[in-house]
């Protein structure tokens, strides 16, 4: 499957696959606009916490579990990568 990812999306896709130990998923094959949770990659709430932790370590800013925008921030690879681009410190 050929999908078009920006450099930031590709870097985040690699972090997701590595941090969550996803089996049979290649970073370059993650559709930037597909849902990350439930359908799409099929991630769950523990994955969301794990991902938030890895993003904090890599990019130097906190993703808060009580942020009311989390549904939008974590909706897709693209939305998460855009949020990181806006807030990253590292």
């Amino acid at each position: 499957m050929a999908v078009s990812q920006s450099d930031g999306e590709r870097e985040l896709a690699e972090l997701i696959v590595t941090a969550l130990n996803l089996e049979g998923v290649l970073p370059e094959e993650i559709d930037p606009e597909a849902p990350l949770f439930k359908t799409g990659l099929g991630l769950d709430s523990i994955d969301a916490l794990e991902l938030a932790l890895e993003i904090s370590k890599r990019y130097g800013f906190q993703l808060r579990s009580d942020d009311e925008n989390n549904v939008h921030i974590f909706a897709s690879l693209r939305s998460l990568a855009q949020h990181i681009a806006q807030h990253r410190v590292n």
Partner: peptide
């Protein structure tokens, strides 16, 4: 503050 929830689990 950076404990992995998966490893805690």
């Amino acid at each position: 503050a950076l404990i992995s929830p998966t490893r805690f689990h």
